[in-house]
Design a protein around this nucleic acid. Structure first.
Length: 544
RNA sequence: GCGCCCGUAGCUCAGUGGAUCAGAGCGUCGCACUCCGGAUGCGAAGGUCGGAGGUUCGAAUCCUCUCGGGCGUACCA
């Protein structure tokens, strides 16, 4: 990678100047404009304070010490930036290395052996998945792929609860719908599920069972609950599958209760001094550790709260031997995170064990109208209906193209567009177009390992190569800052640069040497785009 | 009231560990094809980066205040 290469050379220059330290802190970035060279370093600006010299003087001192192996010349600009102009040969060598690395050119081995678990969606089987779950699912899945690209051993987990109070409420709501279908007056409980999805379910149950449950007794509760959970689980799994989300592990909350892990977690917490009793309930002493307020762990009626069970769940994750876990959650869960961190701190689990990747909500825009989502109130657009209309690729792209911390306004008009106005289509088209070039290329024109690349002299070609060369950095940044949108943006940029290059320069021509080199270049462009599409979970079509 | 997120071009958004940061897409207007997939490309117009102070040689970026929007602030999950 060119950036790392230059970083090392600047560090070498730093040492050659007899300055303190190894220069590992030096930053090198792609230049914004051609007149600022290919890469720029802030070494003199950031280093000035370290050695007590003026940035300008330090720059003058370092510039001549930069090796000429890759750098043609160094210019000092502005307050003391070092602008590095590469020799074309260095760029060609970078392309050669990428070609030689094959399909794994953008992957890293930096984290091999580290076990990471990601948990996302984790919706209970009490209603259909919404577009909000869709965003979380894509976010989680793409993060998982990104971490895999860094070499992590990643496990994707879905946590759910198919028993307890919420399911009872679901059962009662379904029973009320069922009585309504049979022509009776029946009302859904106040905290129940108002969604219309229970109506069609009630219809088929009424047809199947007739008037067998006039009262909401124990048997009705069990039957209704089981029927609702079964159908909802089926619906959820179907949507996840269609969105391309595959899990390694499904974790049922019930097992935590059955195994005694909830009780055990409470006991450990108490042993560590993290709990106290008040008003007949057991509380987490959060304020003592800097939390906003203490939180109930065991209600006065003896039932554990969601938080208590979640603590047991995270203890379970830790026991399973993961080095790190990342929970992907919506912004509405923010408050709970502090309590969880404090609980884990009490239990002596290292701070770096748990990370939260937070995301804001999704609204849909179609000719100006926006819908808010709420499962309980039954107001939402389902993920399923969105998939029906747009398909996996488009849904995934739009879900992940925005920074997670921002609200996502899903532009249905743009998503529906089948033309290249649609960025998802535009990127895929670049891939397809290259596939077409490769199909048209005569067999003897195809590049080989020894194909000379130095005939690639156009500015657009060198820029393209530098872009390709930067992909590993983009992947690293996207993973570690929980920012998969950087991949979408990168893919769009490379596609744009390719389309412009294609219009300006012919790949297949009379000059055999030039044709072979250009084929090597576009092959690499295609590989980079395919890598991004793979990471995003989108297809990379050969034809469209 | 308090906590978190967000306010950047008509619209949707990148950029927010300082300097070389005023950017992209869509929309609008104009231009370019005897040729590898025109489902492409090039260009133009368009913004006092919500507002006001402050720190600095330098702020969309850091600090304070303020306005606007979202989400929390349950013995719900």
């Amino acid at each position: 990678m060119l950036r790392r290469l230059l970083q090392e050379e600047l560090a070498a220059a730093w040492r050659a100047a007899g300055l303190d330290g190894d220069g590992a802190w030096i930053e090198v970035t792609r230049s914004e404009r051609p007149e600022f060279g290919d890469f720029t370093s802030n070494v003199a600006l950031a280093g000035a304070k370290r050695v007590g010299e003026s940035p300008r003087a330090l720059a003058e001192q370092l510039a001549p010490l930069v090796s000429e192996a890759h750098v043609e010349r160094v210019e000092i600009a502005g307050p003391g930036f070092l602008n590095l102009f590469l020799r074309p040969g260095a760029v060609h060598r970078a392309l050669r290395e990428m070609l030689d690395a094959g399909d794994r050119f953008a992957r890293s081995t930096e984290a091999v052996g580290t076990r990471l678990q990601l948990e996302y969606v984790s919706s209970n089987p009490t209603g259909p998945l919404t577009v909000g779950h869709g965003r979380q699912g894509v976010l989680g899945d793409v993060l998982a792929s990104l971490y895999e690209a860094l070499g992590f051993d990643v496990e994707r987990e879905y946590y759910y609860n198919d028993a307890g109070r919420q399911v009872d409420l679901l059962a009662e709501s379904l029973w009320a719908r069922y009585r309504q279908v049979l022509g009776e007056e029946a009302s859904i409980p106040d905290e129940g599920y108002q969604g219309e999805y229970l109506i069609s379910m009630a219809e088929s149950i009424a047809e199947e069972l007739g008037d067998r449950f006039p009262e909401f007794d124990d048997e009705a509760r069990r039957t209704m609950g089981a029927a609702a959970v079964e159908r909802m689980t089926e619906s959820i799994r179907g949507d996840l599958d269609r969105l391309g989300l595959r899990y390694d592990h499904w974790f049922s909350e019930t097992t935590l209760h059955a195994s005694g892990e909830v009780d055990a977690a409470l006991a450990s917490l108490t042993e560590c001094g993290g709990t106290y009793e008040k008003d007949g309930a057991v509380w987490l002493a959060a304020e003592e550790r800097g939390g906003d307020r203490d939180a109930v762990l065991i209600r006065s009626d003896g039932r554990p709260t969601y938080l208590m069970v979640d603590i047991a769940y995270h203890l379970n994750k830790h026991r399973r031997g993961f080095d790190r876990v990342i929970d992907v959650q919506g912004a509405d869960h923010h408050a709970e995170q502090n309590a969880m961190r404090i609980a884990l701190a009490y239990l002596g689990i290292p701070e770096g064990f748990l990370d939260y990747a937070l995301h804001q909500f999704v609204s849909l825009k179609s000719s100006g109208e926006a819908l808010r989502m709420s499962t309980r109130k039954g107001r939402f657009v389902t993920l399923g209906s969105l998939l029906d209309e747009l398909g996996r690729d488009i849904v995934r792209y739009f879900m992940v193209a925005r920074k997670p911390s921002n609200h996502l306004e899903f532009d249905l008009d743009l998503a529906r567009s089948e033309s290249l106005d649609n960025p998802a289509t535009y990127i895929q088209y670049a891939h397809t177009r290259i596939a077409s070039i490769l199909r048209n290329a005569p067999a003897d024109a195809l590049p080989e390992a020894s194909t000379p690349l130095d005939v690639l002299a156009e500015a657009e070609e060198l820029e393209l190569i530098k872009d390709l060369d930067g992909l590993p950095d983009v992947i690293h940044e996207a993973a570690t800052s929980f920012s998969p949108h950087l991949i979408a943006e990168y893919a769009l940029n490379v596609s744009r640069r390719f389309h412009a290059y294609y219009t300006e320069h012919r790949v297949l021509g009379d000059d055999a040497a030039l044709t072979a080199a250009r084929l090597a270049l576009v092959l690499m462009v295609q590989r980079a785009i395919r890598c991004c599409l793979d990471l995003l979970g989108m297809s990379a079509p050969e034809t469209m």
